[in-house]
Every structure is written in structure tokens, then in C-alpha cells.
Amino acid sequence: MASQGTKRSYEQMETDGERQNATEIRASVGKMIGGIGRFYIQMCTELKLSDYEGRLIQNSLTIERMVLSAFDERRNKYLEEHPSAGKDPKKTGGPIYRRVNGKWMRELILYDKEEIRRIWRQANNGDDATAGLTHMMIWHSNLNDATYQRTRALVRTGMDPRMCSLMQGSTLPRRSGAAGAAVKGVGTMVMELVRMIKRGINDRNFWRGENGRKTRIAYERMCNILKGKFQTAAQKAMMDQVRESRNPGNAEFEDLTFLARSALILRGSVAHKSCLPACVYGPAVASGYDFEREGYSLVGIDPFRLLQNSQVYSLIRPNENPAHKSQLVWMACHSAAFEDLRVLSFIKGTKVLPRGKLSTRGVQIASNENMETMESSTLELRSRYWAIRTRSGGNTNQQRASAGQISIQPTFSVQRNLPFDRTTIMAAFNGNTEGRTSDMRTEIIRMMESARPEDVSFQGRGVFELSDEKAASPIVPSFDMSNEGSYFFGDNAEEYDN
């Protein structure tokens, strides 16, 4: 783990906690998980779902989305002020799938948001429990990260689609708070800032007046979040320049895209947490497990152990491969979309394939898809080993990566060399080191050039047997250095459309 220093740990961010010791953190995270579980059980009762239907990941996603929508204050306010045809701002819903006479049927349900809020609060001892809501947002974000390569979004903001390893959390809503900021990748933060800068260039009043003052505060806050992700002084200094700019424009845009590229080699610290679907927490609570009393951590053995003992089902389209669908969801559960496939294969105990080789589309089923041909199958979400999630980018030494994705962002704290394609990355730096950030740029390029592919990161860190909950005997895996390590390699994943 990167030293926490003055930073709060993510469990504290996750639970809005002030400084807590490890036991208190485990208890408050457990409380959050228990609340999600209780809410899910109650919703299944309301909807009269069978046990099997309640364990269907598509039903879980609909129920999670309903509660997130019920608590989305800004959108609710907007919907009330701008009524649109056929949208009731006070209601929320989605597809629920039921097994009827041996076939899967889709039923569109509609609930009062007020009623959903009441059920959620009741499951969370009367609190709004925003930490639990954020947790579900991060699960949705991790699922998107594993399912889609955001080529269009990258290109629109002047970045290269091969930089997708920097895009963790790119679909997280803005209201996801400190826990959300911690899991956002460098590219995601750059993209958010670039969008602001572009608006400022096109709209003279963007930075002016009372609204402009708020915009400015948001801009500086985002700059500080991004600065905190960088691990070298030169990158941090460049972020200070971007933040202090009187009138952010093209120079800042250039600096930010430069920094994003540099992060492929001088990786930023991005938190990883295993956020599971509500249909995993519900049955665990129903079986009598007391998360608050037992304590829970999002970055240790607990999620692995929970998945070892969970039964989750998914709808499967006619030509999809259930094992591939399982891999997709497994990666999402562990926030591992940008991790090295060699490491993932070792931990999972079966070969993890790149996205383009998977015969599976996303987990969600569109409303126009034919239910007649839908089957369902068990998702295999178990693992051979477990490993500690990392909050750091690993040290800054790398190795060759593949054509589709030119770097990785480690999820697990496991000893290995970190793949990246130096030639491709360095070719993108057209040696432009003039301007006010020239000395920093020169320094950053120097550090990137001296990074050695064969150097090892996370020295001495290994994986653990599932029986080793105290992480007492690390097993340090050895990897084939020459092997392909990137998930979005030469990829044809669908595009994420909101």
C-alpha cells in the first residue's frame, strides 16, 4: 500500500469516517454492505422474486439502478423543472426478469421514488447511507470498465484509444464523492478537466460571474484530485501550473494530454476495490451473516471469500459463452479491467482472455432483445487465490505491452514486471518541450526514458491461498515475461453508450 500519510484510507472515504482504527473501519464497511443486503432482500420480497430470480444479476442491476435514481437529487430536480413526455419524475423502474413456464419473461416495473427511498433508509437504520449508494455506483463503473473500451470518449477529448488503461471510473457520476474520486484513473480526471476547458473556450461566460466562481472551485478541486494521483514531483508541479492558470485554454489542454500520456509509464495511484452486485450481499445477509459484527474490507480476502460461497446467475444470449460472461463479471467484481492478464489468470486459476476474444456482450439486456431465446446460467466467480488490492500504480518500471492497449494499471499487489510499449508511448511525445512547463516536461520525458521494462514492481508481494486469511504465506508467482498482458488488445469491444 502506498503510505497513507495525511490521506484517509478508502474504507474511511467509503464510510465518510473520520480517523478510525482498522477494526472500526471493518465494522463501518460491514455496516454499509449489510445495509445493501437488507435493502436487496426487501426489494425481492416487494417484487415477489423467487430465490433464483433474486440471484439473477440482471435483476440486481435494475434494483441497484432504481435506488441510485431515487437518490439522484440533481436529476430529480431537473426532471421536475423540465417535464418530458412519458417520463414521470417521481417514478423509477426498469426490467425485471421472471421464469414463467420454463421461459424467461421481461416485466417492466415502476415504483415511486419516495417508496424506494423509504425501503433503502429502513434497511440502513434510517440513514441515507450515501456510502452504500456510492458502492453500487463503483460496481456499475467497474462493470462498464470491463465491458467497454471507451474509444470515442478518448478520441473526443484528444487522447489515444490505446490509453484505455487510464480510464478507470470514466462512467462514474460526478456525485460519487471521495470514494469515487479515489477509483478514477488519470485519464478519467484528464477527460473531465478537458471537457471543462473546452467549454470555457467555447463559452465566454463559463468562468464568469457567480456560476463561474463555482465552476472555478470545481476545476481547482479536480486538479488537486489529479495532482494527488501522480507520484513524481515534476508531474505534480505541472498540475500546479494547470490549476493556477488564470484562464484555462489550449496550453492547459496540451499540458493535460501530455500528463495523461506520461501516466502510461509514470503511473498514478488509483484505488481498486472489489464492489459486488447487491444480489451477492442480499443472500449472505439472508443466511444470517452479520457483516457489521464480522467486519468487512473491500481490499482484502473478504470479497473473494464471499464470491467463493455465492451463487449468481445471468441471462445468456443464444451465441454467448457462459464462461466468457463469467470472466467479464469476475473482472468487474475485482475492479480488474486494466490489470495484467498474466496476473489475473494466476489468481483466477483459469486463463483470462483479452476482451476481443470473449464471445459475450454486456450483462444488460436491451429492451428490444428477444426473450424467447434467452437461457440462463451460473456465473463462475470463484478464484484459485486471493491478493491484496493496490492503491498505487506500482513502481515506475515497465515491460512490453500489446498493440491495442499500451500499458496497464495494476489492481493487485503482486510481484511482476509491468508491461508497456515504450516505443509507441515515446513516439507520441513530439519533443515539444517549450513553453512555461518546459523544464517539467524535459524531466518527465527523462524519467520515462530511463524506466526499464525488466524491473520488478511490488517486490516480494504474492497471492494467498483462500485458507490464508491473515495473509501469512505469500506465494510469489513467476510470469512468462514475453507473454501478452493487455485486456483490450487489438480490440473490438462495443462502445459504451450512456
Rank of each mutant, 00 (worst) to 15 (best):
D203T: 01
L49N: 00
M163C: 14
T134D: 00
L133Y: 05
S165H: 01
E434R: 01
P410E: 08
V67L: 11
E220F: 11
A471S: 09
E434C: 03
A286T: 13
L418N: 02
A70N: 03
T134S: 15
A472M: 03
S345C: 12
F464M: 05
R382Q: 02
D88H: 10
E81Q: 12
G356D: 03
S450N: 14
G17P: 15
L379V: 12
S450H: 09
R382Y: 14
D455R: 09
R400C: 09
Q168S: 15
P95M: 15
L266R: 10
L226D: 06
A2C: 01
G490L: 14
T423G: 02
L328Y: 04
N368Y: 08
W330D: 01
S402I: 01
A234R: 00
A403E: 09
K113A: 04
I347Q: 11
D145I: 04
E449K: 11
F489P: 04
Q415I: 07
E18T: 11
S9M: 06
Q58Y: 02
C223I: 10
I109C: 13
G485T: 01
V100D: 01
I444E: 03
R221H: 09
K470L: 01
L266K: 08
R382F: 05
M159T: 06
G185L: 04
R261Q: 11
R441A: 11
E320P: 00
N319H: 11
Y313A: 02
Y281Q: 11
R174C: 02
R436N: 06
R199Y: 05
R75E: 08
G404V: 14
H334W: 03
R389L: 04
G295L: 05
E73Y: 02
F39R: 00
I33V: 13
L259S: 04
M481P: 05
N205M: 03
A181I: 02
G349T: 04
F291V: 12
S69Q: 07
V312M: 15
H334A: 10
Q241T: 05
I217D: 08
G37P: 03
L166Q: 14
T232D: 01
P283I: 07
Q231E: 10
L154H: 10
N224I: 12
Y289S: 06
Y289F: 14
L344A: 04
P354L: 04
L344M: 07
F412N: 09
T350P: 11
R117S: 15
I116W: 07
K103W: 07
L226R: 11
N397H: 02
S3E: 00
G356M: 11
R174Y: 01
E46D: 12
Y148F: 12
V476P: 02
F412M: 05
A234N: 03
T390V: 05
E380K: 10
L298E: 02
D455M: 12
I425N: 09
E114I: 08
A182H: 12
T378K: 13
K229I: 11
V183Y: 02
T378V: 01
M43D: 05
H272V: 03
Q122I: 13
K184D: 01
R175A: 07
A251D: 11
L341I: 15
T350E: 02
A263V: 08
L298W: 09
M371W: 01
T232I: 06
I96S: 00
A271W: 00
D72A: 14
T411N: 06
P410C: 03
Y385E: 01
L108F: 13
D340A: 07
L328I: 10
I217F: 11
R106K: 11
E454G: 09
R74N: 11
L264D: 03
I444G: 04
Q308N: 07
N309M: 13
S335A: 15
V155F: 09
L133T: 06
P95G: 02
G393S: 15
R391L: 09
N205A: 10
S28Q: 15
A153T: 14
T188F: 06
D340H: 10
G35Q: 13
A271Q: 00
A337Q: 06
M159G: 02
N101R: 08
M32D: 01
L353H: 15
D421W: 02
G180K: 04
I57L: 14
F488Y: 12
M371L: 10
D145Q: 03
S457R: 03
L193F: 11
L143G: 01
H82F: 13
N224R: 00
N142E: 02
S377K: 01
I57K: 04
I406T: 13
M43W: 05
R446M: 11
F479Y: 13
Q327H: 13
R152M: 05
E494S: 03
T6R: 02
E449T: 03
R441W: 11
L256C: 11
T92I: 11
Q4E: 05
E115G: 11
N397Q: 13
W139S: 13
P410R: 04
M239V: 15
S392W: 14
W330T: 00
A278R: 00
N76S: 15
E469A: 12
R400L: 07
M159C: 01
